[in-house]
């Protein structure tokens, strides 16, 4: 029996349910942009190498260009359109604005989604390749510029706005750290 090559699926995006028919070849990125008019997530390389298409899947950052839409059914998808709290920007969005963490802006939605997750991963105590001692007894390293650069290495910026992107991520982490304590 030849299996069906398309399915009707329901995606949970930014807290809303969308039902749509998809050819199984459709990536989540194409479903967002071409089927659901959620064009905030950008297509750069379409090969998982540039990070412009970064979204959050069940709260964890992922590249939507290598995620098949049909395989994303049942997962909580957050795109750049869903990170703000109503009219109140997410602290990472605000920091990118405050510090000019972009030039042309094309990679920015992916940078912001990735940075949101970087701050959460760091707060959860995850080490990185820049972490000198990964043993749990060594504790969590501070989110230094070196740590931010390593943790953000899956997001390319062809304008080269990296200096202010690193500053924006650091500022947002500080703001969120204070909010968590307050």
């Amino acid at each position: 029996m030849t299996p069906s090559t398309s399915s009707a699926i329901t995606l949970n995006i930014n807290g809303e349910k969308y039902t749509l028919p998809v050819d199984h070849r459709t990536t989540l990125l194409d479903a967002l942009r071409e089927h659901l008019d959620l064009t905030g997530s950008k297509k750069g390389c379409d090969l998982g190498q540039c990070g412009a298409c970064t979204v959050l899947l069940d709260g964890r950052r992922a590249v939507s260009c290598l995620q098949l839409a049909v395989a994303a059914e049942g997962r909580a998808i957050t795109t750049i359109e869903g990170v703000a709290d109503g009219e109140r920007l997410h602290p990472v969005q605000q920091a990118f604005l405050d510090l000019d963490g972009y030039q042309c802006g094309y990679c920015t939605p992916g940078q912001i989604c990735s940075a949101i997750a970087v701050i959460e991963e760091h707060a959860a105590g995850w080490p990185s390749a820049a972490t000198d001692d990964v043993r749990p007894e060594a504790g969590v390293p501070a989110l230094s510029a070196e740590e931010i650069r390593e943790r953000m290495s899956g997001n390319l910026c062809r304008c080269g706005a990296y200096v202010s992107i690193v500053q924006a991520v650091a500022q947002a982490a500080e703001v969120q750290g204070k909010e968590a304590v307050a």
């Binding site: 998982g48 990070g51 970064t54 899947l57 964890r60 950052r61 992922a62 590249v63 290598l66 995620q67 990735s114 997750a117 970087v118 991963e121 080490p127 990185s128 390749a129 972490t131 990964v134 043993r135 749990p136 007894e137 943790r151 953000m152 290495s153 899956g154 997001n155």
Partner: peptide
């Protein structure tokens, strides 16, 4: 994982040396 980092730190380091944060999540 704490047990990986404590008992086999080179394994944690090897995994962290590969790909990007997005790809490691997937």
């Amino acid at each position: 994982h704490p047990d990986v980092r404590r008992h086999y730190p080179a394994l944690a380091q090897a995994v962290l040396a590969g790909a990007s944060g997005q790809l490691r999540n997937m």
